[in-house]
């Protein structure tokens, strides 16, 4: 087996997991994660997660999309291929709004989907925690908390004892197989 990846602890119910997340954060750990079959109310705050920057990614791409949409039409209709349409001026900004809006939404949607994937580290086909037999229950009926070995405060013995002290069950050291 390779080097340790994380210590995994199971908790009896969502409330215990929420309390454990709070305790782990309070103890100074930063590289830890919670795993549950469904979202738990208040978990973000308990884990001390910050708001996702996704909104700003989407907003930025919306501005880019709108600029491209408006710019392309302006360039085509005034410089590259001016054509009289319905007797309107070449630069008819009113008519450009629809495509500008559509490209803004398109870029924003791409930003939302791709940004969400990249921020959550997806697509990812494997994760070291999957080496744990017990962990397969995370999507059914069990609540887990894992503290990763690369956390500055991680210490195999102390962290193990700490997780036990806050009520962790079925503790397990999950290792990363050496390549």
């Amino acid at each position: 087996m390779g080097k340790p990846f994380a210590i995994l602890a199971e908790f009896a119910n969502p409330a215990d997991l929420l309390a454990a997340a709070r305790a782990v954060r309070k103890a100074g750990f930063r590289h830890f994660d919670c795993h549950s079959p469904f979202p738990i109310h208040g978990m973000d705050r308990a884990m001390g997660l910050k708001r996702s920057p996704l909104g700003y990614i989407v907003g930025g791409l919306c501005i880019v999309g709108a600029s491209i949409g408006f710019g392309l039409q302006t360039w085509v209709h005034t410089i590259e291929y001016p054509l009289v349409i319905a007797g309107k001026p070449f630069f008819s900004w009113q008519a450009f709004i629809v495509v500008t809006f559509a490209l803004m939404v398109l870029f924003g949607a791409f930003g939302a989907v791709l940004g969400m994937l990249s921020l959550s580290g997806l697509p990812r086909l494997h994760h070291p925690l999957f080496h744990s037999e017990n962990f397969s229950r995370f999507s059914r009926d069990a609540f887990f908390l894992s503290i990763e070995a690369d956390d500055a405060r991680f210490d195999r013995k102390e962290t193990w004892a700490f997780l036990e002290s806050i009520g962790g069950l079925n503790l397990e050291l999950v290792e990363e197989p050496s390549p």
Binding site: G87, Q94, A95, I97
Partner: peptide, 12 residues
């Protein structure tokens, strides 16, 4: 409001 304006502007 924009839709109303846009259609009226377009049809002229």
């Amino acid at each position: 409001g924009g839709s109303q304006y846009f259609l009226i502007w377009y049809a002229n």
